[in-house]
Structures are given as structure tokens and as C-alpha cells.
Design a protein around this nucleic acid. Structure first.
Lengths: 165, 165
DNA sequence: CGAGAGATTCTTGATATCGAGACTCTGTGA
DNA sequence: TCACAGAGTCTCGATATCAAGAATCTCTCG
């Protein structure tokens, strides 16, 4: 079976027969899959009145374990966004009652963001729907294939970050 | 070697031992790789004074072959953005002199977007840098592994779009 | 002990996106 | 032929992001 990326590469090959396009076969598929995945996540979250960026923040707090508290700096590192973005996100989550913001008693520069019970319910529900949706999306691959794919993606990601460093 | 996703899954497993997290092993890696890839693309394009969204539009026109002309509707389908976004993109590319906009002689509702020689130079240069960067990012995998990965991603993508339909 | 480098968070302004709806034009069916 | 459903494009308002810099506080080192 041919997919969109095969078509993409074929049209580049027609116009630029001088180039080696093999890298596209892998990396264009990664980008396209990520796009489709974003839409699927959005869909999965909608039943829980949560959008993707909210989930990212709430999930980081949930994963931290009780008392479900992290600094904005930790949240920035976990979610890979800038500090301005995180300030804005925390503001809106406070306004929705899903997290609270309080002063860090041990560092007067610092702030602590804590999940409320409502926030915890929201993230737990959304995670369930997300995992259901993801399993459905992966159902076309056998377990062996899924494991193989996870392994190759791990290798690729590790060599990415090595190159960046 | 462990990566960030192994750590992510491990912390979810600690907090939610009741859930089956295997799907994350594949799909979280896809999302994260796409993020890193976006940054690498941006970097590769910068030498040619092109940003990613500009490349996406110019590349669609370049792939179409002479006379390098497409309708906004075709560009929307190629680049997977909304019509409002495409209007805005074409406006700015016209302003930069990389494309022209003209009336479609055969349909008075229609518009034709055409690559200028400057646009063609820009996209050809950017494509070269992009492919160089992508090959570097993939250099950690053997050719066999790259082919295997491309094949698995193709299967996954095809089953995605089947499910969406 | 005090100065300055660094950490932490927030503010501001520029940018780019989406979604919904407006507008114009095409082409078909009665 | 003429209404009208639908295609194609654009406008507008809401939203979210980033980058750069300001403001505040900590802590090391001379």
C-alpha cells in the first residue's frame, strides 16, 4: 500500500531527480503522524472538557504524585514550553479551578502549582480516554510490530538528542 | 538505553498501576520526535531566510512542476491548514515576492498562486539544507533500520486514516 | 558581609493559527 | 432561464505561542 508520503516523495523525485530523498521516508511520516495524533488527542479529551495544553500541565502534576505540586520551572521542563506560555497556562487553570498557585515557603522567588481534586478528576478521566484512543490507533499493528516500532523510535530519539548536545 | 518516554511511562506506572500504558511507548515518541524535528527544520531553513510555513507552501508549488501554479484550495489540501490561514500565508509570500496571485481565467471565483523565480531559488536551497539535516538526524540508524522504521510508520499511518474515515 | 552572577517567574508585543461566517461565482434541475 | 445548492476564497475575532526583557530573590566567593 502507498501512503501520502510515498506520493510526496514521488513528486519530489520527479522534479528533483538529483536529490537523495530517503530521509523523507522516515521523517515526513513522523511529522504527519504527529499531526493526526494531535487531532485524535483533542477528540479524546473533549468528553472531559479538557484541551491538549491543559492535559499536558495537569498530567505533569498528576505524575509527580501526592501532593501533586510542582514549580512553574519544573512544569516548563516537563512540557517543553517557554516561561511566558506557562504563566499564561497556570493563570487559566487557576481560573478554571483545576490548580492552585501559592508561594513557595522555602524560596521567596518561587511559586508552587498544585492540582485540585477537580483537576485530578479531569486528568484521570482524560488519560483513560486518551489511552483508549491510542490503543485503537495502534490496533493495525501486531504487538511485535508495536514493540519494534517503539524500539526504533527510542534509538532515533536518543541519537537526536545526542546530536543536539 | 532509556529515553524520556521510558521515564514518562515509569512515572505513570507508579501513579496509575491499574492502566495499560503500552500505547504510549509508541505514540508519545512520535509526538516528541516531531517536536524535535520541527526545531531542526527551522534551523535548517534559517540560512535561506525561510520559515517552516513558507517552505510548506513554496514546496507544494515546486512539487507541482512547471508552471509552478496551484489554487489556494489545492494548497490547503497539500498543507493541511484552514482557508483563513492560507489566505494569510499567500498574502505574506506575495509581499515577500516569492509568489504571485492572479485571477483564474477559467473560474471567476478562483485564484492562482504561482512561484516566482526568487521563490523557486528559496525553496530549492531550503530543501537541500533540510535533506542534509534530516540525513544527519537519521545517521544513528543503519539503512536497514531506517527502511524498517519507514515501513512500520507507513502501516501505522494507513491504519490511522482508515480509522478516521 | 556585600556585590554580582544566576535562578525564577512574570510582562509585553509580535506572530500565526483556527473556526465561523460573508461574499462571489458556477452549474444543475425543474 | 432562473432559483439555489455548493464550491472557492476571504474577513474577522478569539486564542495560544514565543522571544526578549523586567523584576525579584538567592547564594557563592572574594
Amino acid at each position: 500500500m502507498r501512503d501520502e508520503v510515498d506520493a510526496l516523495v514521488a513528486s519530489w523525485a520527479r522534479e528533483r531527480p538529483d536529490l537523495d530523498l530517503s530521509a523523507m521516508q522516515v521523517l515526513s511520516r513522523v511529522s504527519r503522524l504527529a499531526l493526526h495524533l494531535d487531532r485524535a488527542r483533542k477528540e479524546a479529551f473533549s468528553a472531559h472538557r479538557v484541551v491538549a495544553w491543559e492535559f499536558d500541565v495537569l498530567a505533569a502534576l498528576r505524575r509527580a504524585g501526592p501532593p501533586y505540586t510542582l514549580s512553574p520551572g519544573s512544569l516548563i521542563r516537563e512540557t517543553m514550553v517557554t516561561s511566558g506560555t506557562m504563566t499564561n497556562r497556570v493563570d487559566r487553570l487557576v481560573h478554571r479551578g483545576l490548580v492552585t498557585r501559592s508561594a513557595d515557603p522555602s524560596d521567596r522567588r518561587g511559586v508552587l502549582v498544585t492540582l485540585t481534586p477537580e483537576g485530578r478528576d479531569a486528568v484521570d478521566g482524560a488519560l483513560g480516554s486518551l489511552l483508549d484512543a491510542e490503543r485503537r490507533l495502534l490496533s493495525g499493528l501486531s504487538e511485535d510490530e508495536q514493540a519494534q516500532l517503539a524500539g526504533l523510535l527510542r534509538s532515533l530519539g536518543l541519537s537526536f538528542t545526542d546530536l543536539a548536545a
